[in-house]
């Protein structure tokens, strides 16, 4: 019997190695796997590359992981947030590398990784400093730049519902990066608000089929809070 549901955070975070690239979903605090990020903090892996839309807020979650010196490099589109104090302090001190990526290019790099596309051409960023050092090609009269796929060793996902096969649904804007993070990561770990019996999620409503999911932890925390 396939059962991807794990009972403890230790099981959810087992075997995560130093030096991993970790794709973290979330936009604001909606659809952000905060409990799994805390689990990663507890687990202890270091020298991490984190890819996420934002670079953390306050002194919790991703910001806490960075504050503990566990993140070597962050790949994001918008390092500013309501309270980006940890990131900005580390960045100014030269203690963290930053790769800024346009948000759509970030999403497409993750999607491409999940789809087995190693790189793709895009018009986004042409003529800007994002294009510096990148391969340019003219296709049908328009100039494009080559962007690499962004693969995760680990993907952290927040779902609304999950079953033991790892089939997932999401709630409203909580979907954001979650389905593509699940596709692009070698090990996809999910925190879910609800566990459903196999067959109880209508097949038409499953957004992420379980093939993209490895471990599911039940975390019924309720509604997202501030941003």
């Amino acid at each position: 019997m396939i059962n991807k549901i794990v009972q403890t955070m230790a099981d959810a975070m087992a075997d995560i190695k130093d030096g991993s690239t970790v794709l973290v979903s979330g936009f604001g605090s909606v659809g952000q796997p905060n409990v799994l990020i805390d689990g990663l903090i507890e687990q202890g892996a270091k020298d991490l590359t984190i890819a996420a839309n934002n670079a953390g807020s306050g002194h919790v979650g991703l910001a806490r992981l960075m504050e503990l010196g566990r993140v070597r490099r962050i790949i994001c589109s918008f390092p500013r947030s309501s309270d980006p104090v940890v990131f900005e302090t580390l960045y100014r001190a030269g203690k963290i590398e930053l790769e800024i990526v346009p948000q759509g290019t970030l999403a497409e790099r993750i999607r491409a990784a999940g789809a087995g596309v190693p790189a793709f051409f895009t018009a986004t960023g042409v003529g800007t400093k994002m294009a510096v050092g990148k391969e340019h090609r003219e296709i049908n009269g328009r100039t494009y730049i080559l962007e690499d796929a962004l693969f995760g060793d680990l993907g952290l996902v927040e779902a609304w519902e999950a079953d033991r096969w790892g089939n997932l649904t999401y709630k409203l804007a909580g979907r954001n990066f979650n389905p593509i993070v699940a596709m692009a990561s070698k090990l996809t770990v999910v925190q879910t608000q609800h566990i459903r019996e196999l067959g109880d999620i209508h097949p038409d409503h499953i957004v992420t089929p379980g093939i993209f999911v490895d471990r599911v932890l039940h975390v019924p925390y309720g509604d997202p809070g501030g941003f």
Binding site: S77, E88, V101, P102, Q103, G104, T105, A123, T124, M130
Partner: peptide
């Protein structure tokens, strides 16, 4: 810029 934040602006402008 100390920590430039681009968000989706380049995608929107080009797309």
């Amino acid at each position: 810029d100390t920590a430039p934040a681009v968000g989706g602006a380049m995608d929107l402008a080009a797309g």
